Computed example of a mutant assay.
Amino acid sequence: MFRPGMTWLDISGKPIAIHGGSVIQEGDTFFWYGENKERTTGKDDIWHWGVKCYSSKDLYHWEDRGVIIAPEPEDRSSPLHPARMMDRPHIVFNAKTRKYVCWIKVMGETAQTRSVLTADSLLGPYELVRRDQLPLGMSAGDFDLVVDSITGRGTMVFERVHSDMICADLTDDYTDFTGHHSAHFPRPGVPSVREAPAHFHRQGKHYLLTSGTTHYFPNPSEAAVAENIHGPWTELGDLHPTDVTRTSFNSQISSVFKHPGKRDLYIAIADRWLTLEGAEFESGELSARVWSIFEKAFAVPKQELSDEDKQLAHTLFAAVDTSKSGHVWLPLRFDGDRPRIEWRSEWSLEEFE
């Protein structure tokens, strides 16, 4: 049974410690990997402790397989140094090279870069083959990797920071860019610019789920659909239309996983970054207020915040401890081409054909 937002323990009884994650299936085993936030308490400069992985046969019970891409605490220049803001790793398998290819995003003071690692096995060891790259010369934020199941073509979908969304084709080995790309969803800036793209295929069409740009604070997710990954994309609006708090049920989607044994089950894998004691986002009052603060702070012209709102914002920023962040897995349902997510306090795979 899935219980979104509740603390999810692995089979040893410890909280699952990965975020910005994705699920890959190999044979009869599922692998869930992501950035390791075990040591990211907000009290020091540790942003991550490498990339961690869990395995499962049923998606409910997960075994800790350890850190598959280790941090490099002795080398402050490394993209894997714990103080460098590495997150949202994505791993794909290249059928031609027989390599697993992992791209990571690293946020810097002036730009957001990419580094690439490869391995012969999903669980590693991984070798750094390209580092601190500006994709096509762009500062590149959150991203997803897409592999065409028919042609094998690889594409990266990424946020050109505070601007728009870029779809950029990868070279045959998935470790670089061909140069061919397209731009979509232009926005005037934060908080409306789209980030955290999560791509999936369904019935021959491409879908893209994205969030707004409000740091760790939840905001309304949106969906879009296209016949071709380079567009044109049709925007479908709010992905969580029944959520009156406008916070995507206090979560941010990192990826979408199609269950191989179910006819039409797509699972949105999301992070609940904020887990504040006594602050129930589902009640609506606090979460709606936080979103209104962001809308005011980034409005053009900028709107002045009240002293009370300023104090709340300061308290929330000081309270972020991602070592305690949770997970929200919810099924997508479809009205024609339009995906929707509704709140379920608990649900199971057995409900689906």
Rank of each mutant, 00 (worst) to 15 (best):
His181Lys: 12
Asn219Tyr: 01
Gly278Trp: 10
Gly204Glu: 08
Ile68Leu: 06
Gly154Cys: 08
Pro73Cys: 03
Gly5Tyr: 01
Val256Gly: 06
Gly5Cys: 14
Tyr207Arg: 01
Gly27Ile: 08
Asp271Ala: 03
Arg39Thr: 14
Asn228Gln: 10
Glu35Tyr: 09
Val146Cys: 14
Pro232Glu: 12
Phe334Gln: 05
Lys296Gly: 07
His61Trp: 07
Gly34Val: 11
Arg76Tyr: 08
Ala313His: 05
Gly42Arg: 09
Arg340Phe: 11
Ser192Ile: 14
Glu74Cys: 07
Ser22His: 03
Tyr33Ala: 10
Ile229Thr: 01
Asp243Val: 11
Ser77Gly: 12
Asn219Pro: 02
Pro79His: 03
Lys43Gly: 10
Leu312Thr: 09
Asp87Leu: 13
Leu134Ile: 11
Phe31Val: 07
Lys99Gln: 08
Glu342Trp: 12
Pro260Val: 08
Leu9Met: 15
Ile150Lys: 15
Glu195Phe: 01
Arg160Ile: 12
Ala299Val: 04
Leu9Pro: 06
Gly124Pro: 13
Gly50Cys: 09
Gly278Asp: 10
Leu239Gln: 01
Gln25Ala: 05
Lys52Trp: 04
Pro89Ser: 05
Asn94Asp: 10
Pro197His: 06
Met86Ser: 06
Ser255Phe: 07
His19Ile: 02
Ala319Asn: 07
Pro15Phe: 11
Ala83Trp: 14
His162Glu: 15
Ser221Trp: 02
Pro15Val: 11
Asp142Ser: 04
Phe200Arg: 00
His199Ser: 06
Tyr266Trp: 13
Ser163Leu: 03
His199Gly: 00
Ser292Tyr: 00
Pro79Cys: 00
Gln203Arg: 14
Gly21Ile: 09
Thr151Leu: 13
His90Leu: 03
Phe294Asp: 02
Ile166Thr: 12
Val23Asn: 02
Asp238Glu: 04
Phe143Ile: 05
Arg289Cys: 06
Phe143Gln: 11
Leu265Arg: 04
Trp343Pro: 01
Thr275Gln: 13
Gly141Phe: 03
Glu109Pro: 06
Gln252Asp: 00
Leu80Tyr: 09
His230Tyr: 07
Glu127Asp: 12
Thr97Gly: 08
Leu265Phe: 07
His180Arg: 11
Leu239Ala: 01
